[in-house]
Design a binder for these strands. Structure first.
Lengths: 350, 350
DNA sequence: GCGAGGGGGTTACACGTGTCAGTGACGCGT
DNA sequence: ACGCGTCACTGACACGTGTAACCCCCTCGC
């Protein structure tokens, strides 16, 4: 605007941000001394009066070290990269996600979320590698290839952790066994004598990562049950949007589908569908059993109370500690742990 | 390990990550040329054959630039710091939060979440300043002081944006008018003829940031109504934990409280309480009206359908654009915008 | 009196990058 | 033949920090 800014571009308010050199000048010592004092380096002895002068000078100038310069010199940072997806995840998952970040910060890591919008795995890995993170915790948004992992490790990542459906060599793979959720839910329904079982699959894009394995798990349960006394169970996928209209439409043609049970992906979808079924005159659980997942408190408020799959998720804290250990000792054996355990909580809707 | 690496430090797959100097060596040009080529600098002309050689060398070595070194030299980064709280926020807020991050990344910013666990405002600001972010979007976890803002700006932040209840000078303050939510809800109840109004206050620590202003808003509504025809409305705070036991306990002594309406902080708390009231034989809405907030889909599934306050939140996208504009032009006048608008959606519970 | 030793600092280099100011080589007009 | 301009590229510095290696001076022991 005013041309005076062109002449003196370095006039914010208190001018430029002070460096350790400024502190050194003010304290009347060398820059090295400043570094030693402010980092409490034990290998070098500095007298107490000097320490005080340095600290006071730093305080007076409002000196703040430059993290980038520091980690450039050090050759490593304490940054954990956490590529996260842009998907409407449920409360359980976002809780886990929050805890993870919280615990990492407690362990003195800097958590960086980073997107990889429509990038291929290798491009994404390249973008991540630019930041030279000390660890990468990939949440399954992109399926890392082996070369991508290689690139990340070469760029200084001491730990690469994948949370996904499949294992990636060279990483600590935490198997997020979504399939098991569908499996136990469906097995429970079959045990209760149900035979034609619908499985709700959200149409919400981005949820496929969760919904597909759950459907597969349901299919597995139906097949393995075929051998026992309870033979002939079938699974029918049911696309559903998360709104009343879609639920009513599905409930409207429920009788022609000839189903006697439904695993609804989620407690939220389950509640939505159950209400629509009741409004359409289908009795739950007599005519159709309904099972959700996540064990939300709200599911207990409906009548009948919603049966559900309770998911015991690994604590964010545990995962954070795994990260920390892998960073400390890069040769930690890539142990694969299962991220979640599932068990059915039977209430009244099944 | 093996001493041969000391003799030949240039082993691509093994060990060190290649720098632009390695690329230059392989391509047979100077490091400056590499920089020009890979950054497509238009001010300098490089012949096409040379460009190709450089690109191929970079490709072969798997060269990845070092973001920290780059921003050190450049004197600025494209990092947006997003200090976030460790609180169990609702779906609405976390949706907004996700969108914001997503849009910022789309605008080519690097989003960094950073904690400030129990730090005082000035300490937190110091920790943030170390990262030299180009913008800080504070979500009200810590109340920034004026000096803290000053420090951040001196350290290179071109935009400081606060989302909170109070305005901070020198920042773009987005007023998150939580009070208004309680106000419209309570006003609605008073208009409907209710007089003794309970206001649920979650005991969950960390939610006070939201619940306190809502309670205050409710009180304001009751007071301002005192002047009109509908005089004598009173507000009674009701602490509540998010579990059935707590809700049942509250419902058990409902009659002695003598309330004829309740604004329940949230749709989730509202659903919980409404169920408990019904189980205790209190009829809704005849005996007691219930109003929630957030307009969750699930609220429409209960009977009676839950009345609620619909919250129109500023889009994450809009906020991201404000950040971007403020970064581009640091002299953008600190406009204060209201982050959310509230209106009552009357259904059947009131 | 003189070397050893150590307390208290400093000098100098390295980290990886961007970019300004040159520097040859070459074509061209007079 | 010589100056001038353009092309294609290089040399050198700066960004802010950590740390190994060195240096000076004082004291102590013999």
């Amino acid at each position: 605007m005013s041309h005076s800014t062109d002449q003196t571009p370095e006039r914010p308010t208190g001018h430029a941000v002070p460096t350790s050199a400024d502190v050194a000048r003010l304290a009347g010592v060398s820059r090295a001394t400043v570094s030693y004092v402010l980092n409490n380096t034990s290998a070098v002895r500095i007298s107490e009066p000097t320490r005080r002068r340095v600290r006071e000078a730093a305080e007076e100038l409002g000196y703040v070290p430059h993290a980038a310069a520091r980690s450039l010199r050090a050759g490593h940072s304490r940054m954990v990269l956490l590529p996260s997806a842009h998907i409407p995840v449920g409360p359980l998952y976002s809780q886990f996600f929050n805890d993870l970040q919280w615990e990492l910060r407690r362990l003195d890591y800097t958590v960086v979320q980073y997107g990889s919008v429509g990038l291929k795995p290798d491009e994404a890995a390249r973008a991540w590698a630019e930041l030279r993170p000390v660890a990468v915790v990939s949440l399954g948004e992109v399926e890392l290839t082996e070369q991508a992992v290689e690139l990340l490790k070469r760029s200084g990542a001491r730990a690469v952790i994948t949370l996904g459906t499949q294992q990636v060599p060279g990483t600590h793979s935490l198997a997020m066994d979504q399939g098991r959720i569908g499996e136990v839910a469906t097995a429970h329904l079959i045990e209760s004598g149900r035979r034609r079982i619908g499985v709700v699959v959200p149409e919400e894009p981005g949820l496929g990562m969760f919904s597909r394995p759950r459907l597969e798990g349901a299919r597995r349960a139906a097949e393995s049950a075929g051998t026992g006394a309870a033979a002939g169970a079938t699974v029918v996928p049911l696309p559903l949007r998360y709104d009343e209209e879609s639920a009513d439409e599905l409930a409207g043609r429920w009788r022609e589908l000839g189903l006697d049970a439904v695993f609804a992906y989620n407690d939220e979808y389950a509640m939505l569908l159950m209400r629509a079924l009741q409004d359409a005159g289908i009795s739950v659980p007599e005519e159709t059993a309904v099972v959700g997942a996540d064990d939300l408190l709200l599911g207990r408020l409906l009548r009948p109370r919603l049966s559900t799959v309770h998911i015991d998720m690994v604590l964010g804290r545990e995962l954070a500690e795994l990260v920390d250990q892998a960073v400390r000792d890069a040769d930690t054996p890539p142990r694969s742990r299962r991220l979640l355990d599932s068990r059915v909580v039977r209430r009244e809707s099944s």
